[in-house]
Simulated assay, not measured.
Amino acid sequence: MSESVGPSPSLPDGDDAVARYAIQAAIIRAQAALLKRQEGMLRRVDLPGGVGLWSCRLRDEALDWSSNSFDIFGIPRGAALYRPRVLQMYEAASLKLLNVLRTKALSRLHSFEFDSEIVTPGGERRWLRTRAGIETRDGVPHRLFGTHQDVTADIARLAALHRSADLDPLTGLANRRAFERCFGEPEASGGLPTGALILIDLDGFKAINDVHGHVAGDACLKRAAARLARICKGADLVARLGGDEFAVLIPRPADPVALRALGTAIVAGLGRPFAHAGLLLKVGASVGIARAEADTTPGLFARADAALYAAKESGRNTAVLDHDGAERPRASRKPA
Rank of each mutant, 00 (worst) to 15 (best):
S2A: 13
E3H: 13
S4R: 15
G6Q: 12
P7C: 05
D15A: 09
Y21W: 12
A30L: 07
A33S: 08
A33N: 03
L35I: 05
Q38W: 07
E39D: 15
L42G: 00
R44C: 14
G49Y: 14
V51N: 01
L53F: 00
L53Y: 00
S55A: 09
L58M: 02
R59N: 13
R59P: 04
D64K: 05
S66H: 07
F73H: 12
R77H: 14
L81V: 09
Y82R: 14
P84K: 04
L87G: 01
Q88C: 02
M89D: 04
L101T: 09
T103M: 05
A105V: 14
L109F: 02
S116W: 00
G123R: 05
G123F: 09
E124D: 12
W127K: 04
W127N: 04
L128C: 02
G139L: 08
V140Q: 15
V140H: 15
R143Q: 03
L144S: 09
T147C: 08
D150P: 01
V151F: 12
L158A: 07
H162T: 15
L167A: 12
D168W: 09
P169E: 06
T171V: 08
G172H: 07
G172V: 11
L173R: 05
A174Q: 07
F183T: 01
G184K: 04
G184T: 03
S189L: 11
G191R: 13
P193N: 07
P193R: 10
A196H: 04
A196R: 03
L197V: 05
I200Q: 09
D201A: 01
I208F: 05
D218H: 05
L221E: 01
K222Q: 15
A224P: 11
R227K: 13
R230E: 12
C232W: 02
V238Q: 04
V238F: 03
R240G: 04
P251Y: 15
P251D: 14
P256A: 06
V257Q: 04
A258L: 11
L262M: 13
F274S: 10
L281I: 06
K282F: 01
S286R: 04
S286P: 08
A290Q: 00
T296G: 07
A302L: 08
A302G: 10
R303T: 15
A306F: 03
L308P: 07
K312L: 06
V320Y: 01
D322K: 00
D322T: 11
D322C: 15
A326E: 06
R328F: 01
P335K: 09
